[in-house]
């Protein structure tokens, strides 16, 4: 094995690499500036590809969202949500954040759809689990509807 010694030999290289990779990733997921020497168009293609992959996984962990929204609206709304917003805490969290955001500012979706998304979010966000019993659940949904309106 060559001249690498765990712990010392690569620390300067690690710092340089960390700076370079951080600048690239920030440009791709956090609306950072295009780092020197990169092709801006290609970066845009990669940015969209990453959001597309992220949407694929979110659609797998939360298949109800593309069902409620329709595939096309799900994709466009998700892209609008994800642009410049790095993922925090995994894909389930991402699906919940996306749904919450959609109920707050999803302009391209009508009120009924937004209400469905809000219900979906309320039932999964853990803050207020849907209560037992039909009457209580109906009241809870009514309340959710008012909040979403």
């Amino acid at each position: 094995m060559a001249e690498t010694h765990p712990g010392d030999g690569t620390s300067a290289a690690r710092e340089r690499l960390a700076r370079a990779q951080t600048a690239l990733l920030a440009a791709l997921v956090a609306d950072g500036p295009v780092p020197d020497g990169f092709d801006a168009e290609r970066l845009a293609v990669q940015r969209r590809a990453l959001i597309g992959k992220r949407a694929d996984v979110v659609a797998k962990v939360a298949p109800e969202l593309p069902e409620i929204l329709g595939e096309k609206t799900f994709r466009t709304e998700f892209a609008a949500y994800a642009r410049g917003r790095p993922m925090e805490g995994g894909y389930r969290r991402d699906a919940l954040d996306f749904a919450r955001r959609l109920t707050e500012e999803g302009r391209a979706v009508d009120r009924a759809t937004r209400l469905k998304v809000r219900r979906w979010w309320l039932e999964r966000s853990g803050a207020t689990p849907p209560p037992e019993g039909r009457v209580r659940r109906a009241l809870y949904r009514l309340r959710a509807a008012r909040q979403a309106g």
Binding site: A18, T22, A30, L50, R54, V57, P86
Partner: peptide, 11 residues
């Protein structure tokens, strides 16, 4: 030391 929060690429 990068001055940025941690980010996941997702791919």
């Amino acid at each position: 030391t990068t001055g940025r929060p941690r980010m996941e690429a997702g791919h």
